[in-house]
């Protein structure tokens, strides 16, 4: 059963601020969860989950241990919302 407590927890995990008026959000959330729950009717005993559609075709995909330089610092920091010299600046952590 999906209730406000579950919604609260999920919004915390997703770091998503919910509006003060929760009713619509809760209703939509419930609707989506019910929709996903439509799979209840399926017989899934003994069925392996499918993680990769190309599981048979894909061989091992490795990278050799060789250094490449794709970006310089300026490019890396260019899109930073807040920058301090050579660093990204972020809100205080403890």
């Amino acid at each position: 059963m999906v209730n406000e407590k579950v919604l609260e927890r999920v919004s915390r995990l997703a770091e998503l601020e919910l509006p003060k008026e929760r009713d619509q959000v809760l209703r939509d959330f419930q609707r989506l969860v019910d929709f996903a729950g439509m799979l209840e009717g399926l017989q899934l005993g003994g069925v392996e989950p499918l993680y990769q559609v190309n599981e048979e075709q894909a061989g091992n995909a490795f990278r050799e241990d060789l250094v490449t330089q794709d970006l310089d610092r300026e490019e890396a920091l260019e899109n930073a919302p807040k920058r301090r010299g050579e660093f990204f600046e972020v809100p205080k952590t403890f």
């Binding site: 250094v67 490449t68 610092r73 050579e86 660093f87």
Partner: peptide
């Protein structure tokens, strides 16, 4: 998961 160097002591974000 990428080709960036792991050498110790490089200037930040290089």
């Amino acid at each position: 998961f990428c080709g960036c160097s792991t050498a110790f002591g490089a200037p930040p974000n290089t």
